[in-house]
């Protein structure tokens, strides 16, 4: 038996919006620790990892680990039927082939249940080693979203260069080129600022199409963290307050 009740149901709606553009079908892994997912996009150059810890739910029960395969487009259709203030409960039997989403209005005067058919999905689980990254950038998530969106109107790829002075985003396209530099913010009173931790300067190039998909997670967190090392996939992480994270990995473009 799996049962998870989330008073802030809008969080689950936002989580789904943050992954459904990247992945169509995915296995959710439910365990005593929480509700998790790891999935690659169809071209296998990007990966999303989600964790919602058990203690972030008002009620959480998972008698034995289970995998629930869902079509995310269909899951999204159902979650869109929940009000933003609704409480969402997910329920599934151990041997069942459906998951039930129950929506309760805050005044408890409307209760809905939606049953989604589960599916068998073959998926590769990747082991991602813990790595010390050469550069870590924390910046306002809305700023990162804006930069990715703006640059994708000029070019298809972005080169991200991190030095001790700041982080530079550059692109080139048919119409010209663009550079945006965010300097490390030195004012201490600003909560959302650009902070750089640097072991050594690093420059990597990525497809903007994927980064733009990652920024669908912007409503989940005020800050985004980018971690980069030479010739390694970038990690783009959004922390979900008191609950877990949505983390994306993207392979860099490498010169032939």
């Amino acid at each position: 038996m799996f049962e998870a009740r989330l008073v802030q149901g809008s969080l689950l709606k936002k989580v789904l919006e943050s992954i459904k553009d990247l992945v169509t079908d995915a296995n959710f892994d439910c365990s005593q620790n929480g509700f998790a997912l790891q999935a690659m996009d169809s071209s296998h150059v990007s990966l999303v990892a989600l964790l919602l810890r058990n203690d972030g739910f008002e009620h959480y029960r998972c008698d034995r680990p289970m995998t629930m395969g869902m079509n995310l487009t269909n899951m999204s259709k159902m979650l869109k039927c929940a009000g933003n203030d609704d409480i969402i409960t997910m329920k599934a039997d151990d041997a069942g082939d459906v998951v039930t989403f129950m929506f309760e209005s805050p005044e408890q005067d409307k209760i809905s249940d939606f049953e989604l058919k589960l599916m068998d999905i073959d998926s590769e689980h990747l082991g991602i080693p813990d790595t010390e990254y050469a550069a870590t950038v924390k910046m306002p998530s809305a700023e990162f979203q804006r930069i990715c969106r703006d640059l994708s109107s000029i070019g298809d790829t972005v080169t991200i260069s991190v030095s001790k002075d700041g982080v530079k985003f550059s692109t080139t396209g048919d119409i010209g080129q663009a550079n945006i530099t965010c300097r490390q913010n030195t004012s201490v009173d600003k909560e959302e600022q650009t902070v750089i931790e640097l072991q050594e300067p690093v420059t990597l190039t990525f497809a903007l199409r994927y980064l733009n998909s990652f920024t669908k997670a912007t409503p989940l967190a005020p800050t985004v963290q980018l971690q980069m090392s030479k010739e390694l996939p970038v990690v783009v992480q959004y922390l979900i307050a008191d609950m877990g994270y949505v983390r994306y990995y993207l392979a860099p473009k490498i010169e032939d």
Binding site: M40, S43, H44, V45, S46, L47, E124, H125, L126, G127, I128, P129, T157, T205, A207, L232, P233, Y249, A251, P252, K253, I254, E255, D256
Partner: peptide, 14 residues
């Protein structure tokens, strides 16, 4: 030109 490797070449498959 530039190429993009699969993530499976960076991480190991479980």
């Amino acid at each position: 030109g530039s190429a993009q490797k699969s993530l499976t070449s960076f991480f190991f498959t479980k």
